[in-house]
Write a protein that binds this DNA or RNA. Structure first.
Lengths: 222, 222
DNA sequence: CAAAAAATTTAGACGAGCCAAAATTTATTC
DNA sequence: GAATAAATTTTGGCTCGTCTAAATTTTTTG
């Protein structure tokens, strides 16, 4: 069965929005993410449903089928491997890679992606800390990860991922010189607005809003 | 003006078949090269003509306009740079790269292609010896090149390109261990069928048919 | 040069994807 | 539990790119 580029895009988004295919996703959510109209989404959902790639219940939502999940995993794999390539070898910023990877992920060549994986050294995580499925579609174990908004005070932690990969958020982090791997200590948490005082890489002290802290995934040392 | 992927493909092929846009190209030639039907080609030629990307004369043929030539050069540049990447960094064979590059050439990102060019070290020729336009659309000077079928006997030469980049031909060359850069001496030429006896890399002696010799571009030493 | 062959174009149709506007269903609120 | 609001689907229509079959033009050949 031939799977179209647009279909791959829909499947990837349905898979990701539905927490790896476990939850139903709404038509509007998909339309938002793909910058298209709800009516277009409905059209596509019917097609994907006919092809047995999703399970679609009118007015309720959609989730990927086993078949659709495999396609989605493959697309996610390609997307994230290309992101690694762009950041590590072509020196793109992590906020720039998504749009280009969204094109590159549709290149059809089994050999290409396996060779690329090897060239990159079989990376486990993409530049945003998101896990990269291996060639069998298996996700690596997620880091033992907590939201920065939740961690105890005065404990050494480092950034392992972001929940929000939007350009706006990533550009904000760039501006604060916050990168994957950055070391943190949360000095204080303010009841008033949930904001934090954080010491970054044992130097700069800065204030982090709750909104931001809820989108930073950190791993804490023993 | 938005240029579609299919349009880019047509422009590249019209440009290349028409010797860099100097000659008119026939509908059938385009259909052959793109593995599509002549009627589809005619449809597309009308569209390209309306967009002022080609000059199209019914029943006569088509050639790229100045505008179309720029698009074609850009596409050729991307195509050939990706071919270099695939061969040099992912260790594809030169006979495998065309199909993948045909997909990669349509990725839209000015930054990507400039970064890739830099990553590759600004190569001047692709894995088949074809010249790569620079970012201004300028072709590097072609090597001072002769067909192997034309060279004098007992003169040291090396392979700098192939006229035929088909998978069949390249696979044949692989089988004979003939690569870009291989050193040659033509020992003898037979009137009977135009075939040659060649010494390859100062070792193996082999017979080359005229058909093959006419598709090998060589450069001879002083 | 007329007839046959080859190349090309036209006509009509189709699938993929998308959209706006209208209709329908579900959710919310009084 | 109506009435309203929000979400979703349907309807009809559009572009892009392709195809087959038929018509036309150009080229070749006897």
């Amino acid at each position: 069965m031939q799977i179209q580029i647009a279909e791959e895009n829909y499947l990837r988004v349905i898979f990701l929005l539905g927490r790896s295919g476990t939850e139903y996703v709404s038509t509007n959510a998909i339309a938002d993410r793909l910058k298209t109209k709800p009516s277009s989404v409905t059209d596509m959902l019917k097609r994907l449903s006919e092809k047995k790639l999703v399970s679609y219940v009118k007015y309720k939502g959609v989730k990927v089928s086993t078949l659709g999940k495999n396609v989605a995993l493959d697309t996610v794999r390609k997307h994230r491997l290309w992101e690694v390539f762009l950041v590590e070898h072509l020196f793109f910023g992590w906020e720039e890679v998504h749009e280009v990877a969204e094109q590159l992920e549709h290149i059809q060549s089994k050999k290409l992606i396996e060779k690329l994986d090897e060239f990159l050294g079989f990376p486990k995580y993409d530049p945003h800390g998101d896990p990269i499925p291996n060639s069998l579609g298996e996700m690596p174990k997620i880091h033992n990860t907590v939201l920065m908004s939740e961690i105890e005070l005065n404990r050494g932690c480092h950034l392992v991922g972001v929940k929000d990969s939007s350009k706006a958020f990533l550009t904000y982090l760039d501006g604060q010189n916050i990168k994957l791997g950055s070391e943190f200590i949360v000095e204080a948490r303010f009841e008033y607005d949930g904001s934090l005082n954080v010491i970054l890489d044992n130097k700069k002290s800065l204030s982090i809003s709750q909104q931001v802290a809820k989108n930073l995934l950190v791993s804490c040392h023993e």
